[in-house]
Every structure is written in C-alpha cells, then in structure tokens.
C-alpha cells in the first residue's frame, strides 16, 4: 500500500510539474464554463418566453441544466482521458525508467494501481471544475443535491473505467502519441457503439448497446443509483487493470 501511495505521489507530481495538468484544467474550466453558460442562457430564454405567454415554466430548471451538463461532460471526457493516460507507461518505456520500477522490490500491481489512481485523481480535479459551475445553482435556487451527487459518482465511475482502458493501451507502446490516439479511438468506439441499440433491437445490437459506456450513464444522470450500471463500470475497471497487468508482464517476456 505504501508503494501504491509512492507511485501515486510521483505521478501526481509529474502531472503538476509539467504543464499538462494546467492545460487540462484550463481547457476544462473553459469548456465546462461554456456549457454551463450556454445552457443557462437557453433556459433563461425559455422561461422568459414562457412568462410572456403567461404560462408557468413547466420544467425544473436547475435539474434540466445539470442533467444536460452531465450529458456533455462524458463527451469532453473522451478527449481528456487519452491526454491523461497516454504518458503513464509509454513515457516510462521510452525513457527506460520502467527498468527502474521493474527491478525495484515493488509489485507490478502496485505500480499499475498507483498510476491508475493518479490518473483518476487527475480526472476528479477536472470534474471538480464543473462542480464549481453547478455550485452557482445553489446560490440562486434549491436544487436537490442527491441526484447531482449520484451523477458525479456515475461520471467518476465512467471516467475511471475509460482511464483503466487508457492505462492498458499506454503499456502497449513507447510512443505517447500512438497511445493517446489509440485510447481516443477505443474510448470513442466503446462510447458510440451503444447507438446501434436505438434503432435496432436484434440481439447483437442489444449486446453491443449493453457493452457501451454511454448506455450505463443514463440511470446515473437521472439520479438513480442502479447497482447493475455501477457493477458494469467496476467490471470495466477490473478488466482494464487486469489487461494492464498482463501486458506489463508480457513486456518482460517480449522485450
């Protein structure tokens, strides 16, 4: 456990010593801020129009805003996640520092866990930026905080699952760009493959839809905690980290 913490601290430091963390934070602050602002504008417009027609605004505004916001964050995540994970192992392989880790009295699992946890922590920092926007809603209205919390849990689980896949892909190459591009492709594919389920109800389409990360997000954004979906994400995390461990082991047999 001490070793996991050691690796985690080292990874966090390298995120925050290099400009990468700040670029990601800035990007996310701008993007989430823009989402929030444009959603808010749209709903202000709607409610104004509704009032002019003398109708009651039919929707719960804060809830609509957060729901749409939480629908957008995973899409942003698709772009962000490869940037977080691409260097994890690829860089160690390129500079040869992987030899230091593998010849030190530390288990592969500890290295992998430390690195993945650091990536997840980084992702949490980015999610936190969107929470700042959401916090504004609490100043002006009284949204229910429980569904918001559940949504964040969903976002975190989904992010952690995709980060595990990214961590695995990063072990496959020495080249960060390749790792990043492949991770982006893989995440996008696993994200959009659920779309076939929308117009096709054959078995294969349903299976594909089930495997997609996006279909499991819905229950979370509705504010309901569905154990089935949580288990799906946890499974994906376990599979991703398991593959990472296998790949790291095969590194020794192949190199």
């Amino acid at each position: 456990m001490r070793n996991v913490w050691l690796i985690w601290r080292k990874e966090m430091r390298s995120y925050f010593v290099s400009p990468i963390a700040y670029i990601l934070l800035l990007m996310c602050a701008l993007i989430f801020g823009f989402f929030f602002w444009s959603l808010l504008q749209a709903y202000l417009q709607f409610s104004m129009e509704a009032q002019m027609r003398g109708e009651m605004f039919p929707m719960n505004m804060p809830e609509e805003i957060t729901r749409r916001l939480f629908g957008n964050i995973p899409v942003t995540g698709l772009f962000i996640i490869p940037l977080i994970t691409m260097r994890l192992f690829a860089e160690e392989k390129r500079t040869g520092t992987i030899e230091l880790l593998t010849t030190s009295p530390i288990r592969d699992g500890e290295v992998i866990l430390g690195k993945w946890l650091a990536a997840t922590t980084m992702y949490c920092c980015l999610l936190f930026l969107s929470a700042i926007n959401v916090a504004f809603l609490f100043f002006y209205s009284h949204p229910d905080w429980k569904p918001i919390l559940v949504s964040y849990l969903g976002l975190l689980l989904q992010g952690a699952a995709l980060l595990a896949i990214g961590t695995f892909i990063s072990t496959l190459t020495k080249n960060q760009i390749i790792a990043g591009a492949a991770t982006f492709g893989a995440c996008l594919l696993i994200f959009v493959c659920g779309w076939v389920g929308e117009y096709n109800s054959e078995t294969w389409a349903r299976v594909l839809a089930y495997l997609s990360v996006s279909t499991h997000m819905e229950s979370f954004t509705r504010g309901t905690l569905d154990s089935k979906d949580a288990i799906y994400y946890v499974t994906l995390i376990v599979v991703g980290l398991f593959l990472t461990a296998r790949s790291m082991e095969s590194l020794r047999w192949r190199s």
């Binding site: 430091r13 390298s14 500079t95 040869g96 520092t97 030899e99 230091l100 009295p105």
Partner: peptide, 23 residues
C-alpha cells in the same frame, strides 16, 4: 541500465528520495 533511468522533471534530491523509498 545503459541509460540512467531518470525522471527528467524530478530534482536530484527528490529522485533519490523516490528511489530510496521504492527500495
């Protein structure tokens, strides 16, 4: 190893402390 396994963004003291803790 043939190329010293150094993390370029770390400072020397910090790096030695990291490796020491690893060991």
């Amino acid at each position: 190893p043939e190329t010293p396994p150094l993390y370029p963004e770390m400072m020397t003291g910090e790096y030695l402390s990291f490796v020491g803790s690893l060991k």
